[in-house]
Amino acid sequence: MTKLPAWPAVVCDVVCVLVFTLVGTASHASGGSAAHVATVGAPFLVGLGVGWLATRAWRAPAQVWPTGVAVWFATVVLGLFLRPLLGGGFAWSFALVTAVFLAATMLGWRLLAALAARRART
């Protein structure tokens, strides 16, 4: 088990969602205004918060399984569900890109933390 205080893990997850939002809005030339970025990112930040609360991720925030996978799943599913309700659209291609990008980043930092902890022990 990788020990890490909760706040850096929260920051890492929020940064993953914000980078996803910023890259997405920039690549689609959607203006990049703060309001637009907030509208696109808000559903996923809500999903992230629910995922953290539902899994009590603060107990083992850097664990890939089950914590990371459950937080990632909640972020993606709730974000995609809330997005149309908050004025955004839905497309299967967007859902796929969302799931892959957030898996790579949200699970990726956890894998790197586990590898760093393993190296520190040896």
Rank of each mutant, 00 (worst) to 15 (best):
L82K: 03
G51K: 00
V69H: 06
P84H: 05
L53P: 04
R59M: 13
L78I: 15
A62E: 04
G49P: 05
V69C: 10
V77Q: 01
L78H: 03
L80N: 05
F73A: 15
G47I: 00
T75M: 06
R59E: 13
T75K: 03
G68A: 13
W58E: 14
A57Y: 04
G68K: 06
T75H: 07
F73G: 12
W58V: 11
L82F: 11
W58T: 05
A54L: 15
V77F: 03
F81I: 14
G49E: 01
V71I: 10
T67V: 14
L80E: 14
L85N: 09
F81S: 11
L85T: 07
G51T: 00
V50C: 07
A60G: 09
P66G: 12
W72G: 01
G79D: 04
L85E: 10
G79F: 05
V69K: 06
R59Q: 15
A62I: 08
L80P: 01
G87H: 04
G68C: 11
V50P: 02
G51P: 02
R59S: 14
W72M: 05
F81C: 14
L78K: 01
W58R: 13
G87W: 01
A62S: 13
T55W: 08
W52L: 14
A60D: 12
R56P: 08
V64H: 06
P61S: 05
V71H: 03
V71N: 04
P61T: 02
L53F: 08
V50S: 04
A57E: 05
A57F: 05
Q63V: 06
R59A: 15
V77P: 00
L48M: 09
V71T: 09
G88R: 05
L80Y: 04
V71E: 02
V69F: 10
P84C: 14
A54Q: 07
T75D: 02
A54K: 08
Q63H: 12
G87A: 09
L53D: 03
T55A: 15
T55L: 14
G47E: 00
L85F: 07
W65R: 12
V64P: 07
L85A: 14
G87F: 05
P84V: 12
W65D: 07
Q63N: 12
G88L: 13
G79I: 01
T67W: 02
A62H: 05
R56Q: 15
G51N: 01
P66F: 10
A62M: 11
L80W: 02
G88Q: 10
Q63P: 03
G68W: 01
W72R: 05
R83E: 15
V76D: 01
G88Y: 04
V71G: 06
L85S: 10
P66W: 08
V71L: 11
G68Y: 03
V77I: 11
V77K: 00
V50W: 01
R56K: 14
A54V: 12
G87N: 07
A57N: 10
L53V: 14
P66N: 11
W52P: 02
T55R: 15
G68M: 06
L78C: 09
